[in-house]
Design a protein around this nucleic acid. Structure first.
Length: 369
DNA sequence: GAGCGAATAT
DNA sequence: AATATTCGCT
């Protein structure tokens, strides 16, 4: 444990396996192998050869560095590491042999040269923005992204099994020892993107039900909703995101509000169409077994057709006026009182009024669209 | 720092 | 289109 710099699955073995006798599994393996060599010249030869092959490899994928940022990173890392070792050897025995490699440098005008001594950071930096670019984009990539599948699967387990309640943050990393290569480790921290929360029909029903209790989508806040939903593993952010979308749909006023009946079903259909998606919903304790959601009039009665674009009519009772006024709100700020009936205590509504001009503008813009 | 809403990214 | 993430704010 902990010896290898790079986890086996990330190794360069595939790129190295050219036609040589030995095929190291990892750069570390290679270095270990080389270190056994007594003859300095031979050692340097090996190292140099390895570097060249890595660099050749690098050239090959250079065109795809955008698509293969991790490969680039790994190669860079490996090259830098091996070069360091190479320099160490050369320095320790100033042999004529060195000259043999000098011309090689010219060949590899790519990057990695003397800088190697300095450390690969220099190397990277000197590669200019372009490289920085993909490096940064990779930031958090490397191990991470390669590990992603694992993370995902483990997460899926979590979701399906219903264990770990709030362990959803997903920033899990490999605890494996990434000693010296701190950059590699640090990088892996980011790209981790949470696994998508699939809002199944059941989940959405709970969501809507919660909204009802909280006075409609405009009044309800993510946290409240989440608490009401009582769904294990559901996060505020997820609810928030879902709520945002829900509100958008709800507010969306069909342009020129066709007096002709707007087909409400379609939008709702979109929402419900996800039923097949993971039903891994695990309700926490309560799980109102009976028919808690029963009362939810998803189909609504008569007015479903009206403005909201067809989302369950539930909030219409409460926010009926609201959806109307969403438009006018642009002009009449005082109308806001109507929109957030229960929110006074939080000052939510008032806060909204406090938005900067810029914010208001942008908000208005989105509404108009 | 927690929550929120809007904007933006994926 | 549906989610996730980021940003500015309170």
């Amino acid at each position: 444990m902990g010896l290898s710099l790079i986890p086996p699955e990330l190794t360069l073995d595939c790129s190295i396996s050219s036609n040589t006798s030995w095929v190291p599994k990892t750069t570390v393996d290679f270095l270990a192998e080389v270190s056994k060599i007594q003859n300095a010249s031979e050692k340097i030869l090996k190292l140099d050869d390895y570097v060249h092959r890595l660099q050749d490899e690098m050239k090959k994928i250079d065109a795809f560095k955008r698509e293969l940022p991790l490969c680039m990173l790994l190669l860079n890392d490996a090259i830098a590491t091996v070069k360091e070792e190479l320099m160490r050897c050369k320095n320790s025995n100033a042999e004529p042999i060195m000259e043999e490699f000098i011309p090689l440098k010219e060949k590899r005008t790519d990057e990695t040269d003397e800088k190697v001594e300095g450390s690969k950071e220099n190397d990277i930096i000197t590669n200019s923005r372009d490289k920085m670019n993909w490096m940064s984009s990779v930031q958090g990539g490397t191990e991470l992204s390669l590990c992603t599948p694992e993370i995902k699967s483990s997460k899926e387990e979590i979701y399906t099994n219903g264990f770990s309640s709030k362990s959803s943050s997903g920033r899990s990393g490999s605890s494996s020892a990434t000693n010296g290569q701190s950059n590699v480790k640090a990088e892996q921290q980011q790209t981790n993107r949470k696994q998508r929360r699939c809002w199944s029909a059941e989940l959405h029903r709970r969501f809507v039900s919660a909204l009802e209790h909280l006075g409609g989508p405009q009044a309800a806040t993510p946290k409240q909703i989440r608490e009401l939903m009582q769904v294990d593993g559901l996060t505020n952010d997820e609810v928030k995101s879902h709520l945002q979308k829900y509100r958008l749909h709800t507010r969306k006023i069909p342009p020129t509000a066709n007096t002709s009946t707007v087909q409400p079903v379609m939008l709702g259909g979109l929402w419900m169409s996800q039923e097949h998606c993971g039903e891994s919903l695990k309700l926490s304790s309560n799980s109102q077994s009976g028919s808690p959601q029963g009362p939810i009039n998803l189909t609504g009665s008569s007015r479903v057709t009206s403005m909201s674009g067809g989302y369950s009519a539930e909030e219409e009772d409460d926010e009926k006026s609201e959806s109307h006024s969403w438009k006018s709100q642009n002009h009449l700020t005082n109308a806001e009182d109507k929109f957030c009936p229960g929110r006074d205590e939080n000052g939510r509504c008032l806060l909204r009024l406090g938005k900067t001009k810029h914010q208001l503008l942008s908000t208005t813009r989105s509404w108009s669209t």
